[in-house]
Design a binder for these strands. Structure first.
Lengths: 199, 199
DNA sequence: TACTGTTGACTAAACATTCAATATACTTAA
DNA sequence: TTAAGTATATTGAATGTTTAGTCAACAGTA
């Protein structure tokens, strides 16, 4: 059982080291209790060094979100395989491996998403990332429709529901047990079969 | 266009007045920037008065969450009507009226849900509330199945997906435009028709 | 009188941020 | 190859502000 987050392995610069430390501190203490001092502790260096790389706390946190959403976008698989296989992969990614690190990453993302209600920078970054993911899914569904494999009303609408379920699962994982998540997975698979796949 | 939240109209005691003020302060400043002083400002009285009613900030916030989730649970309609009508109502509630106050209430709930990752009290309250809602929906679906109106694999699974979409929409509302929410609504209605209603 | 509501001033801790000082690494000229 | 010089990394201490929480006092009311 590893405790490491794959996105942050081998940080190649001080900036990435600080982002890594910020992520771990966020995970551990939550956004509301996140202080430069705690980030410094996780960083292993003094907190004044952080100000050598970032003007202030805000700039650092916006950079962290940017960095994390970049990882999220990179995790969306490329459309190399058939639409059917692609949907299979997407569904697996939505419901995740239930590994500790995945869950903790999702929780951090949701916590930052909540901040978007009061911070324009966060709002902008999430809009961009959400749009990207929705469009990517919609494109794959469209190609499945073109190939006759899928039968939907509008690929954008189907992709929108996929994304809502993705976000919903992220938020629910905070409190729900694995059993409930499994129920959602089963029902969502039923939806994919009856509402997406052609007969 | 009113700015009032129906849940908080006519607070009948000081405790409710403080909870109301706390909610407005949370809405306005966000959880991370929520201070007793700001709550006092919204309250219209001095902040030391708050300590006359609550031991500390934590107790107040847990009480707020308890209060809010009570409202959420009360908003779930009673199964007075037919299962078909009930599902119609539930879907409308999930996707909301897009009124300002509803959106702001949802945002506050999601922000508090994010805290459940680091606070056991929050976690417990959300578990209770989520379970309650899921079971209520599952019960209605079961009665629809019994009446021959619905055809599902397992009412609990269907209810679980309903709840995930509910939470997902709450979280997405923070950043998404109404157009995207409409897409989700349309697709979810398609799901209800093809996966829930009998032919 | 006793109880509740209410206040403003107070305290101690935590916090973001600054700064002067030191160390380390990197560059270049003799 | 060395010495000097410059940029960058790093620190601990200091600062001013914000914050949660306390408290003694005052007002109204039953």
């Amino acid at each position: 059982m590893t405790n490491e987050i794959s996105f942050f392995q081998n940080p190649d610069g001080t900036r990435e080291e600080i982002l890594e430390a910020t992520f771990y501190a966020l995970r551990q203490h939550g956004y509301a209790d996140l202080t430069i001092s705690k980030i410094g502790d996780e960083f292993g260096k003094s907190q004044s060094l952080i100000y050598h790389h970032y003007d202030d706390k805000d700039e650092l946190l916006v950079d962290l979100l940017d960095y994390m959403l970049e990882q999220v976008e990179n995790q969306v698989p490329l459309p190399n395989q058939s639409p059917e296989e692609y949907i299979e992969i997407i569904v697996d990614e939505i419901f995740g491996t239930s590994s500790n690190s995945d869950v903790e990453f999702s929780q951090a993302v949701i916590e930052l998403r909540a901040q978007a209600a009061h911070d324009d920078d966060y709002n902008r970054l999430f809009r961009r990332s959400d749009d990207f993911i929705r469009k990517q899914i919609a494109r794959v569904i469209q190609s499945g429709v073109d190939a006759g494999a899928f039968d939907v009303e509008d690929p954008s609408q189907t992709a929108a529901l996929f994304h809502t379920v993705l976000v919903g699962i992220q938020a629910e994982r905070i409190t729900s047990d694995e059993e409930t998540i499994d129920d959602v997975r089963t029902e969502f698979r039923r939806y994919v079969e009856k509402c997406l796949l052609s007969e």
